[in-house]
Structures are given as C-alpha cells and as structure tokens.
Simulated scan of single mutants.
Amino acid sequence: MTNPFDAPDAEYYALINDQDQYSLWPAAIDVPAGWSVAHGPADRESCVDHIEVNWTDMRPAR
C-alpha cells in the first residue's frame, strides 16, 4: 500500500486551521475536524506552492 500523502498523481488540498497553520492533505481523505480547505482540490505541486506563499510564519496565530 502506498502512502496517500506521497502520491504524485493524486489530488490534494491545502488545509488551514484556526491558528492559520497549513497542511497538505489528500483529497481522497475526509478533511479532519478543525481544518478547512484553503486551496484545491488540485495537483500536489499547486497545493505545496499555495502553502509556501501563504504560510510565512510557522508560529500559531494565537
């Protein structure tokens, strides 16, 4: 079984939580509680690019 977080041809989401933290998430898996879709579904590179552009401070918002 392959890791769904590493599948190069899968669709992904860029998720964001209430602390303005981001996560790359496979679109085939339900979005976990406390997170919402910030970008996607899209290819992995597009989601990673979105996260890199928008998540400039790794510290929690609060």
Rank of each mutant, 00 (worst) to 15 (best):
S36P: 00
Y12N: 03
A14S: 11
S23F: 08
D9N: 15
P26W: 07
D9S: 12
I16A: 02
P26F: 06
P26L: 07
A28P: 00
D9Y: 10
Q19S: 12
S36A: 12
A7C: 09
A28Q: 14
A28Y: 00
G34A: 11
A28R: 13
L15I: 01
L15N: 01
A33E: 15
P32Q: 11
D18A: 12
P32R: 09
S23Y: 06
P8G: 09
P32I: 09
V31D: 02
L24V: 06
L24N: 06
Q21H: 04
Y22E: 02
A7P: 01
N17W: 09
D18K: 12
D20H: 11
E11S: 14
A7M: 10
P8S: 11
W25Y: 08
A33C: 03
A33G: 12
Y13F: 15
V31S: 05
D6P: 00
V31N: 08
P8W: 07
Q21G: 00
P26S: 07
Y12M: 04
W25V: 04
A27F: 05
G34S: 10
P32N: 10
D30L: 11
Y12Q: 06
A27I: 03
W25G: 05
L15K: 03
I16W: 02
A27C: 05
D20M: 10
Y13E: 01
V31A: 05
A14M: 05
A33V: 12
Y22N: 04
I29A: 08
I16S: 02
V31P: 08
S36M: 11
Y22A: 05
S23T: 04
A10G: 03
D30T: 09
G34V: 12
A14E: 01
N17I: 06
G34R: 12
W25P: 06
E11D: 14
A10E: 10
D6L: 15
W25Q: 05
P26K: 09
D18I: 05
Y13C: 03
E11F: 05
S36D: 09
D30H: 08
Q21I: 02
D6C: 04
S36L: 03
W25F: 03
D20I: 00
D9H: 13
P32G: 09
I29R: 14
A7W: 02
P32D: 09
L24E: 03
Q19G: 01
Q19I: 00
S36F: 03
Y13V: 01
D20E: 13
Q19R: 13
A10M: 06
W25M: 07
D20N: 14
A27W: 02
D20V: 08
Y12L: 01
Y13Q: 02
P8R: 10
N17L: 07
G34T: 08
Q19P: 00
A10F: 04
D9A: 13
D6H: 10
D9R: 12
Q19D: 15
V31F: 07
A33M: 09
D18Q: 13
Y22V: 01
D20K: 12
A10Q: 08
P8K: 09
